[in-house]
Structures are given as C-alpha cells and as structure tokens.
Amino acid sequence: MTITSKSNILTISGNIKSVTNVHSIEEEISILKKKFLNITIHLLDSISITSSLIGYLCKLINQENISISLHIHNNDL
C-alpha cells in the first residue's frame, strides 16, 4: 500500500490489509486535518476497507466535524 497526499487530497493505492496500513492512513489524515476541514480520499485499487478505518472516518465526521469525500475506484468494492 502506498499513500500520497497533495493539498487536501489523499490517494491510496494497493490493498488496505493490516492494522499497520490503517495506522499509516490515520497518521496522514491527522496531518491533513490540521490544515483542512474538507478531505478527499481516493482509494484506487483496494479490494477491501477495514472496519477500523470506517470507524475512524465516522469519528472524524461525527465528532470532529471533518468533511470526508471518499472516492472508490474499484467497482468490486
């Protein structure tokens, strides 16, 4: 899995498989949320999203008032 960020856009390629992957995503989002209230996430080709990542995104939206736009590019997901 690789993560790139530019401005308020986070792009993730590869599969999100492990807790380590989720922690890496959370760390990147933590950096972005200090600068932006709107974050766009592109999942390019992951075949799954872990429940811990879904929970983290829900927390950002519901408790921290961060607007998340999630674009999933894998039609099977």
Score class of each variant (00 low, 15 high):
residue 62 N to L: 14
residue 6 K to L: 15
residue 61 I to M: 01
residue 29 I to S: 02
residue 56 Y to C: 02
residue 20 T to C: 01
residue 36 F to M: 07
residue 51 S to Q: 05
residue 5 S to W: 07
residue 56 Y to G: 06
residue 66 I to H: 04
residue 73 H to P: 05
residue 62 N to Y: 07
residue 12 I to T: 03
residue 11 T to R: 08
residue 54 I to C: 04
residue 61 I to F: 01
residue 75 N to S: 13
residue 19 V to K: 13
residue 2 T to E: 00
residue 57 L to A: 05
residue 34 K to W: 00
residue 1 M to F: 07
residue 48 S to D: 08
residue 36 F to I: 12
residue 16 I to Q: 02
residue 56 Y to F: 15
residue 12 I to M: 05
residue 54 I to S: 10
residue 52 S to F: 01
residue 46 S to E: 10
residue 26 E to D: 09
residue 13 S to A: 09
residue 1 M to K: 09
residue 62 N to C: 13
residue 8 N to C: 02
residue 8 N to W: 04
residue 8 N to M: 03
residue 68 I to V: 10
residue 76 D to S: 15
residue 26 E to V: 14
residue 9 I to N: 01
residue 5 S to H: 01
residue 12 I to K: 06
residue 24 S to D: 12
residue 62 N to V: 09
residue 33 K to F: 07
residue 39 I to S: 04
residue 30 S to D: 14
residue 39 I to F: 00
residue 46 S to P: 01
residue 71 H to R: 13
residue 57 L to T: 10
residue 53 L to E: 00
residue 71 H to Y: 10
residue 41 I to S: 01
residue 73 H to L: 05
residue 23 H to G: 03
residue 73 H to W: 06
residue 60 L to W: 05
residue 27 E to H: 04
residue 11 T to A: 11
residue 16 I to D: 02
residue 63 Q to Y: 04
residue 9 I to M: 03
residue 76 D to R: 11
residue 26 E to W: 06
residue 67 S to G: 05
residue 43 L to K: 00
residue 28 E to S: 14
residue 5 S to C: 11
residue 14 G to K: 00
residue 3 I to K: 04
residue 17 K to D: 06
residue 26 E to Y: 06
residue 40 T to I: 13
residue 74 N to W: 07
residue 27 E to R: 11
residue 31 I to Y: 12
residue 70 L to P: 13
residue 75 N to Y: 09
residue 68 I to L: 05
residue 14 G to C: 01
residue 14 G to R: 02
residue 41 I to C: 07
residue 60 L to M: 08
residue 58 C to Q: 13
residue 34 K to L: 11
residue 26 E to R: 15
residue 56 Y to P: 02
residue 40 T to M: 09
residue 53 L to P: 04
residue 40 T to D: 08
residue 40 T to W: 04
residue 63 Q to A: 12
residue 23 H to C: 10
residue 1 M to D: 08
residue 34 K to E: 14
residue 40 T to K: 15
residue 10 L to K: 06
residue 66 I to C: 06
residue 12 I to W: 00
residue 55 G to S: 15
residue 33 K to D: 09
residue 20 T to W: 02
residue 32 L to H: 07
residue 72 I to W: 03
residue 71 H to N: 15
residue 57 L to K: 07
residue 56 Y to M: 03
residue 8 N to F: 05
residue 70 L to R: 11
residue 61 I to T: 14
residue 44 L to R: 13
residue 5 S to K: 09
residue 67 S to N: 12
residue 26 E to K: 15
residue 2 T to M: 08
